[in-house]
């Protein structure tokens, strides 16, 4: 069984009368890319800040790398890196100098700076100051900065925010590479489920400070995959026909509706078999629940996702 990197139990954070986090419990195992999804103001950044010890929580417990005491958490955070919201850089310094500062902060050698600049495609920036970088370059430099201390667990808050499509693809590839090549566990957030679904292996859906659902990539794919929707008044007879056709992956939703998850290209053949077996088919056709629709369904609608 893989090691638990982060275990948050019933974490709550209250600002005045507003509950930014309401008893959020999340467990992240080593090697996972955990995507935290939620609209703006759902509590994603607040949760990340609590994990990093930047803000205090009103209730709950955080365990990092098996440590939960104040001193233990301080030690554990040395194995972590973060880039929360906007890239936190010194605008007057070059890429190399920014990394030197972070190396000093972490008390680590500056040996890796050249490799990281190359890895993040920033080797050519020379004496150019960070304030003159494009947003994509700043994001990449912020991630390089988090990697200076060789973290085992990376927290990235909306790393693709504001990037153009090619920048988003590049960022996804970088994160993927960090996981496969360096074995880093990642917690990242986005308000775009579609964007996150291309990289995350596990998902937590935050809504108004509450974790309303947690699911794996497979579960999400299942929830949102394409299927044949069948409407009939004779579900039992339809099931018998499907069994005869050798179709095993289907689901009876209620007394008049069924979803069929295989042979999606054979709608006509399935329909013909049902009709020949005297099954009264009211409607049949392929459909797909979009990720956005799924998210809206979970959060009750009013979102940007």
């Amino acid at each position: 069984m893989s090691e638990t990197i982060l275990k948050a139990t019933n974490v709550s954070k209250i600002y005045g009368k507003h509950k930014a986090l309401d008893k959020v419990s999340i467990e992240i195992k080593r090697g996972v890319i955990y995507g935290l999804i939620g609209e703006n103001g759902a509590g994603k950044s607040t949760f990340m800040r609590v994990v990093m010890g930047l803000i205090t929580m009103n209730e709950g417990e955080i365990e990092l790398f098996g440590e939960s005491s104040a001193k233990g958490l301080q030690r554990a955070r040395r194995k972590m890196g973060q880039s929360i919201e906007t890239p936190a850089l010194y605008p007057e310094l070059t890429a190399r100098e920014n990394l030197r500062v972070q190396a000093a902060n972490g008390g680590v050698s500056e040996r890796e700076i050249d490799d990281l600049l190359q890895l993040m495609n920033l080797g050519h920036t020379g004496r150019k100051k960070a304030k003159n970088f494009s947003l994509g370059m700043r994001q990449r430099l912020a991630i390089a900065s988090t990697l200076m201390t060789n973290p085992e667990f990376l927290i990235l808050d909306e790393p693709t925010n504001g990037l153009d499509p090619s920048g988003m693809v590049e960022m996804r590839e970088i994160i993927q590479r960090l996981v496969t090549e360096r074995g880093i566990t990642v917690l990242l957030s986005s308000h775009l489920l579609d964007e996150l679904s291309q990289i995350a292996t596990h998902y937590g859906i935050l809504h108004e400070g509450k974790l309303i659902n947690e699911l794996s990539r497979e579960e999400l794919a299942r929830e949102t995959r394409q299927y044949i929707e069948l409407e009939t008044t004779e579900v039992e007879k339809a099931v018998a026909v499907l069994d005869e056709l050798g179709i095993k992956d289907y689901e009876v939703i209620n007394r008049t509706e069924m979803n069929i998850y295989e042979r999606l290209d054979d709608v006509a053949a399935i329909n013909r078999s049902l009709v020949l077996a005297d099954v009264n088919v009211s409607r049949i056709g392929t459909t797909r629940q979009k990720l956005e629709d799924y998210f809206l369904q979970l959060t009750g609608g009013n979102t940007h996702a």
């Binding site: 990093m52 930047l54 040395r78 972590m80 890196g81 973060q82 929360i84 936190a88 010194y90 972490g106």
Partner: peptide, 14 residues
């Protein structure tokens, strides 16, 4: 304002 304070504090610096 630049958020750079997070870089040091999130590393567990006192």
């Amino acid at each position: 304002q630049n958020g750079t304070i997070r870089n040091a504090l999130s590393l567990g610096r006192s």
